[in-house]
Amino acid sequence: MNASPDLTINTELAQRILTGFIRSEITRTGLTRAVINLSGGIDSALAIYLAAEALGPQNVLAIRLPYRTSSADSLEHAQMVIDDLGVQSMTVDITPMVDPLINNFADMDAMRKGNIMARMRMIVLYDQTAAFKGLAVGTGNKTEILLGYSTLYGDSACALNPIGDLYKTQVRQLSRAVGVPAAIIDKPPSADLWSGQTDEGELGYTYAEVDKLLYLLIDERYTPEECIEAGFADGFVRSVVERIRRNQFKRVLPPIAKLTNRTIGYDFLYLRDWGT
């Protein structure tokens, strides 16, 4: 067994499929434009490079949504992407929308605050999709979707997601290939909800490590025991497996209680692309 699977992808092929996906899934709705919450991190940078190629930069709106504690780097890095691509852009400070709610609750912890910020960004993003006549392009990768490292109805909210079947390791590889600035690719990934926060610090392991494990568990269908046998630490494997299971609720629509003979989600089955 191989504890070090090769996650290398053919970036040209990935780029071709993903730009085709964005173009197809937006234009078949009758729209031609995309709106992206550009955080300054690698995931949204990759998504916007793909969207700009698929639709043309003039048809893409990048929104920067800083909170007062957001790092200056995030704003700068987002600006680098906007300048490089020539996409349309806007900046909306979410502080005056977020703080009144936070200030209502003296005991609010960092996670609640972070969720409020993520959901406020979603509100601004979706409002701009209506104003710009575009669809919200998602920026969640396969690693964070599997680990549930996102806010439900917050940063995970989107109309379509071009990068959700790429592990973070592969996001990095594809980002290099499409020309995302090195400063964005090389910095430690962070949700930037509070100062000094990093994904890998919060998760307790690196993306490079967990991506290999996820690849074996999910793509190669290894059992947890086989992963341990292949060289991954027992506790690491168990905690990741449990984390995947516990976060299933973030990956599905809420269950509807069945009463009739035909119920949405169970026996009313159509693709979203129905009729197009």
């Binding site: 090769d6 992808i9 053919n10 040209e12 092929l13 499929i17």
Partner: peptide
């Protein structure tokens, strides 16, 4: 349906 992305030039 296309699937199976690796380092190879085709799926």
């Amino acid at each position: 349906p296309g699937r199976g992305l690796s380092e190879k030039p085709d799926l």
